[in-house]
Design a protein around this nucleic acid. Sequence first.
DNA 1: CTTGACCTTACAATGGTGGGAAGCTCCATA
DNA 2: TATGGAGCTTCCCACCATTGTAAGGTCAAG
Lengths: 138, 138
Amino acid sequence: MNIGQAATASGVTAKMIRYYESIGLIEPPIRTEAGYRIYATEEIHELRFIKRARTLGFSIEEARQLLALWRDKSRASADVKRFAMKHVRDLETKIEELQGMSLTLRHLARTCHGDDRPECPILADMALPGYDQPPHEQ
Amino acid sequence: MNIGQAATASGVTAKMIRYYESIGLIEPPIRTEAGYRIYATEEIHELRFIKRARTLGFSIEEARQLLALWRDKSRASADVKRFAMKHVRDLETKIEELQGMSLTLRHLARTCHGDDRPECPILADMALPGYDQPPHEQ
DNA sequence: CTTGACCTTACAATGGTGGGAAGCTCCATA
DNA sequence: TATGGAGCTTCCCACCATTGTAAGGTCAAG
């Protein structure tokens, strides 16, 4: 199985497979005489694992740690669960941030007439001072 | 007002002010004889506007468009509102993506015992095939 | 044997931001 | 007045994850 087939089978582009190899996320595979990378089922599984981790929003470094947990057959499932729940909290923090932005903008938009006239509280608000850092200086 | 004071007044770091200038987001300010950038109240307002737009999750290119709308005193408020609501939809799409990830991980974590034993459905699931692209090949 | 698809490496760009080096300027204090 | 330190200047590099491109080698089908 060469890199193109591995890409199709795993859902990771050939480009990214080479990149993951270059950063040591996956082991360099054996090569043909001509220098072509050859992947076995085992490697495809790893790539799929990585792909799935990325889809779930784990960073590459986190995927690296997950891979380590995956390979370590003797680690406690509690370790994995802790790791996963930490990521869930990270995701939810991010979600709350975005919801804050969305809500603020919705509120602003609601007060905007949205007609031919130029007056617009959205832009007016954005020019207001002291919004990003609440005023708490000396 | 030099760049450091402008940074403090606007909440945008000096570093980023120079960057915004370099990409043409703000106009190059006048300089002292020694080459120091000098900012007036007007520019501080623009920087604050940009900062606020970024805080609300607009990209720099979007901030550029918002600035154009802001400067154009005759544009219809409907244009601004449309722009803002488009961004709200973008934000909500992103939120849904993250919620999908979070939910999936929560479900997986719930089925994981989280004890000393190594069996863990979280990692088992992540190695499963055909998850990221639903199976619809030939 | 040619052609085209695929492989190889290497380098650049993206979006925002931070970090740092090397050199100049300003201002206060000794 | 000299000195020192803070702040300014430009320039280049790093991050993360991914994509694009270019120049060249290889494989398989026609």
